[in-house]
């Protein structure tokens, strides 16, 4: 039922922010195809009327009291940052040049 191509892998990799090298696309295509064919078995189950289950316990929004409490201080929160500028996380440019 599935047939994952090289182009499909490149598309998935782009969506998932993975810079998969060109020369590995075929290998991943082959593996993803085998995996998807084996999991496609879920389609054999007649389940049209069955409700979907996302979680084993009922998911209720849980609120805590709106009371200020101590959090991480800036130094601890920034300690693992790959790049810092003026006490803030420095990130690469987010917009194109033009």
């Amino acid at each position: 039922m599935t047939n994952i191509s090289r182009a499909d892998v490149a598309h998935l990799a782009r969506l998932a922010r993975l810079a998969i090298p060109e020369d590995q696309l075929d290998h991943y295509a082959e593996q993803l195809d085998v995996i998807l064919q084996s999991v496609a078995r879920v389609g054999e189950v007649a389940a049209a009327d069955v409700p979907a289950m996302s979680h084993p316990v009922p998911l209720l929004n849980v609120f805590r009291d709106d009371v200020a409490r101590p959090g991480l201080d800036r130094e601890a929160a920034m300690a693992a940052a790959p790049a810092i500028e003026d006490d803030r996380f420095r990130v690469p440019r987010i917009l194109d040049e033009e």
Partner: peptide, 15 residues
């Protein structure tokens, strides 16, 4: 629907 949605329904049946 065919993959994640269907898997969640099968999850209900297993439970």
């Amino acid at each position: 629907d065919a993959y994640y949605g269907q898997a969640q329904k099968v999850r209900t049946l297993i439970t």
